[in-house]
């Protein structure tokens, strides 16, 4: 195996492990009543964020969702500032003003998570318009869930992106549930066809397979840079937790058997681990060390965030307006 491929595999593996670990710790903070508010877990969907973001440069942009921790980590964010943000601390990415649903990290091209379903579709498309007008070769990925397929804004901006050939990739993470309702009860027809109606090339991909996601994204990013965008990806995936951390009793909308199937048979991290070992891209020991190291980093970041200071009270009315 070529060393650059091995490096990339290890990098993607570590990023997926980081997301899983981040969410594990965030869930613990909630269960221990140490986190204000609540949060939406990304666990189970790691291959989507990592497969896509690994195909992007730092100068490329993403917009994210209420279920956004995975995108944030995958685009290069650090644990400490993320946990600080989740706890409303001054050293958080948004000085504690955004919280879980609004983390933005523009130094790494993350234009922000968005707590309005589908709310960032305009922002992502606008970022792509900037790239076209200023002549940069930056590409923007707009992450959204199957639930956002019900929002009209998405189709308005898809129409304009197609008319103007904007370098934007619409990444629909179909995790099969919008809040507590099955996607097929809310979305008529094929999700892919919703982009195709605008002449947008659309692709379905196994969102649990990080290599499949990454390969497709690499191709679409390269084509977007050449002015062949926009594109739509529909990624088949699954959220392990409920809609949010407090959504514990879920049997009224999905079965435990279904959850077990996705966890046991289609876990993106376990399956990639098996693939890497089979292809001799890594040893079991190496991967175990990565998991242990990431766990230590996450624990240390949580401890740091728990001890960190809240913002000074006089910041409550700063940042309403920019200078």
């Amino acid at each position: 195996m070529a060393s650059n491929q091995r490096e990339q595999w290890l990098r993607m593996y570590e990023q997926m492990v980081k997301i899983r670990q981040f969410e594990f710790q965030a869930n613990q903070l909630y269960l221990d009543a140490k986190m204000p508010g609540l949060t939406h877990m990304y666990s189970g969907q790691e291959a989507v964020a990592v497969g896509i973001c690994d195909a992007l440069e730092k100068t490329d942009s993403i917009t994210s969702t209420h279920r956004g921790h995975g995108h944030c980590v995958a685009k290069g964010a650090e644990f400490k500032a993320m946990f600080c943000e989740l706890l409303g601390k001054a050293e958080g990415y948004c000085r504690g003003k955004g919280g879980s649903m609004h983390i933005a990290d523009q130094d790494n091209g993350n234009l922000g998570a968005n707590a309005i379903v589908g709310g960032s579709a305009g922002i992502a498309t606008g970022a792509a318009l900037t790239a076209k007008i200023l002549g940069t070769d930056s590409v923007t990925v707009c992450f959204f869930g199957d639930g956002a397929m019900g929002q009209g804004l998405l189709y308005e901006v898809m129409n304009m992106a197609a008319l103007w050939h904007l370098p934007v990739i619409y990444a629909c993470e179909n995790n099969h549930y919008g809040e507590y309702t099955k996607t097929e009860e809310m979305a008529a027809g094929e999700l892919k066809a919703r982009g195709e109606a605008f002449g947008i090339e659309a692709f379905e991909v196994d969102g649990q397979n990080v290599l499949a996601v990454n390969n497709l994204t690499q191709t679409l990013v390269e084509r977007s840079r050449k002015g062949e965008g926009p594109f739509l990806m529909v990624l088949d995936t699954y959220r392990y937790h409920g809609h949010h951390v407090g959504d514990i009793n879920r049997t009224y909308y999905r079965s435990k058997e279904e959850e077990a199937h996705w966890r046991d048979e289609r876990d993106p991290i376990d399956n990639f681990e098996a693939h890497m070992i089979a292809k001799k891209g890594a040893t079991k020991k190496e991967l175990k060390e990565i998991r242990a190291r990431v766990e230590q980093e996450a624990k240390a970041a949580v401890e740091y965030a728990l001890q960190a200071d809240y913002p000074p009270l006089d910041e409550v009315d700063s940042h309403v307006f920019a200078a």
């Binding site: 579709a121 305009g122 498309t125 606008g126 900037t130 007008i133 804004l153 308005e156 901006v157 304009m160």
Partner: peptide, 26 residues
Amino acid sequence: TDRVIDTPISEPGFTGIAVGAAMTGL
């Protein structure tokens, strides 16, 4: 027409696009 842009009749859409464009340098 690169700087004076006719849009479809999609007020939320082009307002949202303006927000994203404003966040990224226009």
